[in-house]
Design a protein around this nucleic acid. Structure first.
Lengths: 200, 200
DNA sequence: GGCTCAATGTTGACAACGACAACATCAATC
DNA sequence: GATTGATGTTGTCGTTGTCAACATTGAGCC
């Protein structure tokens, strides 16, 4: 233990950015997004209140990094599911990810972070989405209507995730089924068709 | 002008709650949800910084009132669409509402407001949803699988709204179509079936 | 008409926070 | 071994949500 990794009292922390992000990830799920303060993170990391500004431009930038982590995790989960069980498994994995990391999902898709403004975030987000759209394109082809269908499929799982997180589906609709079964059976009720270019 | 309505200098404001909510509605869409501060509202209303606490327990309660307004508007739009154009029109109206009031929609469905905790909010929210689920039940019946299909239909429009608000559907998928046309054609790619109780 | 009181609005204060500037400390490099 | 850039600290400022104590007003009662 020559340098620092264990000597937590050294003037320099060792790897403050990662430590802050780890603490942030925990506090995020525990306390919620809005009450997640930089100063709370510094206390957890045993560091002064202005230290984060050496690594993150501002609070939003740290949140962007957190979201980027999230998109990485989501993309990983989607690719894993695609390999194992195909499209249907991907959809279920999408919703399951949201349920497993509700606050992270809210951060990623809540809208207070405009993804376009953070280059690295935009990058990893599109990568995650490509896991989805790639698998969809392989399945439905690339006719114009097929593209609309893949948007609809994405919207379906995305919306189901949001509804479940918001507890907006009543217990009556749940009929006692656990998350996995409910998600599966709801998703099973939908079929996608290539939309007609002109409605008759 | 005996009492107050025009004499804005009177000690008592006249109808502060409504004035605050009006100002909040404007500031919400203009500046966004997170930067909406009680103090900014009091400045707009020409009233002292602590005045809101006579009418709202705290900031969250004022936001809850704003959200309640939103659910009222959404329910109204849905019922109007149902009367005019049936189920499909309702779905389009749902997404159109989100696009017309993005910050309001984020407030209503963003998840930082736990709806259950505010009784009045819960009330008007379920009313709005009943507009949806009622029309869906009338269309698909009330078999168990049909209920799942209506959850899926709701998830579809809800998710499409969120994706469009987050600018997550790329320009490539849009293919130049305006909002209404895009929404219509995406929604047209989906069909709902009563899910099989046991998959063969 | 005058009194009383509850509702409504104000003033002043406090703690927490994000952000910045000025300063301190350390480690790597020459 | 001195220099220097990166990293962490201290101190401060403005803003915000919230509370307590006080001020003002109008409505109802005698």
């Amino acid at each position: 233990m020559s340098t620092s990794k264990l000597a937590s009292r050294a003037y320099h922390h060792g790897d403050l950015p990662a430590t802050l992000l780890r603490a942030a990830g925990k506090l995020l799920e525990k306390e919620g997004l809005e009450t997640l303060s930089l100063r709370a993170l510094t206390r957890r990391a045993g560091v002064s209140h202005a230290a984060p500004y050496r690594h993150f431009r501002d609070r939003e930038s740290l949140l962007a990094a957190l979201a980027a982590e999230g998109f990485g995790m989501l993309g990983h989960a989607l690719r894993e599911a695609a390999a194992a069980g195909g499209l249907r498994a991907m959809g279920e994995a999408y919703v399951r990810f949201a349920l497993a990391h509700p606050q992270r999902f809210r951060l990623m898709f809540g809208g207070q972070l405009d993804i376009a403004r953070h280059a690295a975030l935009r990058e990893v987000a599109t990568q995650a989405f490509q896991a989805l759209s790639g698998a969809l394109a392989a399945r439905v082809g690339d006719a114009p209507g097929a593209r609309d269908a893949s948007v609809a499929a994405w919207a379906l799982v995305h919306g189901l995730a949001h509804l479940l997180l918001g507890a907006q589906v009543g217990a009556a609709a749940r009929r006692g089924r656990d998350d996995d079964q409910f998600i599966r059976e709801v998703l099973e009720t939908t079929r996608f068709v290539a939309g007609p270019p002109q409605p008759a």
